[in-house]
Design a protein around this nucleic acid. Structure first.
Length: 472
RNA sequence: GCGCCCUUCGUCUAUCGGUUAGGACGACAGCCUUUCACGUUGUAAAGACGGGUUCGACUCCCGUAGGGCGCGCCA
């Protein structure tokens, strides 16, 4: 029996859960599920300056919204500093680490010089073999890991393949800061080891770290977990994600009205594939997921495709469920909470209109917008100009009434206009005759997006019925 | 600058030496619908470039170009 799979998602709480992190979490989650294992959650909060509690909450929220659950309580990395220090001391004791008394200024100068001379930017090993007796007084040392200076370190990665690093290119990294706090590469190794993580799945930006971490594993005589470094997600323009496009937190996607199911499906398909399958359930994802089918190149985030998928999921969600989702969504839409009361009060009508509504919406935002004609309070709020137009009447008024309706009731202009025209044509009557029923629409009770529904509001049910018969 | 990685339609991808290079989104055109949407049919659209290896390369190797990531007392 092989040991159970344990994966982990280890975000640093310096901001929201961004889209790349969400996908990393999804892959870790899917892999663990696939193999009947567990996914752990560890908050990498050793950077006390930048870690915040709201960020932790945002991450937990995001994961929960996406439906990605983890095993047990989230582990605070900072809560384990004592253990990290202990390991650093151990490394020091067995000669795999040493104290370095270089000041930050010296290091900065070292980097600047290397850059000016177009040499690789690395720590020069000043204190590597220097007698600690020469240590300047008053300077608190850091502890550096003694990286092997010859040979190579090989990362056998499930996604990247066999990646070889020459040890001479890996300098002696700091594992314990002068203030006694551990740094990332040490903490990760210690935690992954102590937590029994068997599979590390994270972004390729950690590939070089993987090599350094392997050296620490080896120095400690610990088994190295299976590594998988997944490609990054780029913005639509191929460049790094920026705030303007994909680098939004998942809560932004929730606010845009995307469904978690669609999100999961889209994210899974971004960089991973199962033949030609495009739309699949989470169950299928779990059943099919494998590291081997993760591509190696970065993928661009494509809103159009996400939107299409989301429309699919909206259409295939049962009306009652969708209504519930809509109600739950409103507080996140940022449109103001007055809507939520209205939706509550309009539940029955909404549910009735849902079949027509959901076919036309690609996001929950569009769904709300499409339902405006139901949500708008009657009589519709009219400005002075609109009032005058209504007071008038006659043929000209129809064309003027349409914009009023559009503005006041949330109809689509194109839809309403063509509906009115088509209706007049079908009835063989002049457009002007419709002024009165259009006025009624402003104070009436209900309409829905299709032409038949708009006609309903015009109060001509009998003609409507006739048209429907004609249509078959 | 040094190291590592990547490169198939506009985008996400399939292909794991032999295919008319397939699918999806998007685009365009038609059908359905007396609107919109949904649905549906079809069309255009790709192996970065140059060398090898091979009977045969999108697929393997080398180089070039382009892109990405890393090189913090950040994670």
């Amino acid at each position: 029996m092989s040991s159970p799979v344990i994966t982990r998602f280890a975000p640093s709480p310096t901001g929201y859960l961004h889209i790349g992190g969400a996908r990393t979490a999804l892959f870790n989650w899917a892999y663990a599920r696939r193999h009947g294992g567990r996914m752990l959650l560890r908050i990498e909060d050793t950077d006390r300056e930048r870690s915040t509690t709201p960020a932790v909450e945002a991450i937990l929220d995001g994961l929960t919204w996406l439906g990605l659950d983890w095993e047990g309580e989230p582990v605070s990395q900072y809560g384990r500093v004592h253990r990290h220090r202990e390991v650093a001391e151990q490394l020091l004791a067995n000669g795999n680490a040493y104290r370095c008394y270089c000041s930050p200024q010296e290091l900065e100068a070292m980097r600047a010089k290397a850059e000016a001379e177009k040499r690789p930017i690395r720590y020069d090993g000043t204190w590597r073999n220097r007698d600690p007796a020469e240590a300047p007084s008053g300077i608190k040392p850091v502890i550096r890991f003694r990286s092997p200076d010859a040979g190579e370190t090989v990362v056998d990665d499930h996604v990247q393949g066999r990646v070889v690093f020459a040890n001479k290119d890996l300098d002696d990294l700091i594992i314990l800061r002068s203030d006694g706090n551990p740094t990332y590469n040490l903490s990760v190794v210690v935690d992954d080891h102590d937590m029994g993580v068997t599979h590390v799945i994270r972004g390729v930006d950690h590939l070089t770290n993987a090599a350094r971490q392997m050296q620490i594993y080896q120095a400690m005589g610990w088994p190295v977990p299976e590594m998988s470094h997944i490609p990054l997600i780029h913005g639509p323009d191929g460049a790094k994600l920026s705030k303007r496009h994909g680098a939004l937190g998942v809560e932004a996607y929730r606010a845009m009205g995307y469904l978690p199911d669609a999100m999961r499906n889209y994210l899974a398909r971004l960089g991973w594939s199962h033949g030609d399958d495009e739309i699949f359930s989470t169950g299928q994802l779990v059943e099919w997921f494998s590291l081997e089918n993760i591509g190696k190149s970065a993928a661009r985030f494509d809103f159009a495709k996400l939107e299409n998928l989301n429309g699919h999921y909206i259409r295939h969600t049962p009306d009652e469920t969708l209504l519930a989702m809509l109600i739950a969504f409103v507080p996140y839409a940022g449109a103001g909470n007055t809507l939520s009361a209205k939706i509550g009060a309009t539940k029955d009508k909404l549910l009735k209109a849902m079949p027509g509504l959901k076919e036309r919406a690609k996001t929950l935002v569009e769904l709300v917008n499409g339902a405006q004609y139901l949500l708008a309070s009657r009589p519709l709020p009219l400005d002075e100009k609109a009032r005058q137009i209504i007071a008038d009447g006659g043929a000209v008024a129809v064309k003027q009434l349409i914009p009023v309706l559009v503005a006041a009731g949330g109809w689509s202009a194109a839809m309403l206009e063509s509906a009115v025209k088509a209706y007049a044509e079908a009835e063989g009557i002049k457009l002007g005759k419709l002024a009165q029923p259009l006025r009624a629409a402003l104070t009436g009770t209900t309409v829905s997006p299709g032409i038949f529904d708009v006609l309903e509001v015009l109060g001509r049910e009998e003609s409507l019925a006739r048209l429907r018969d004609q249509a078959g």
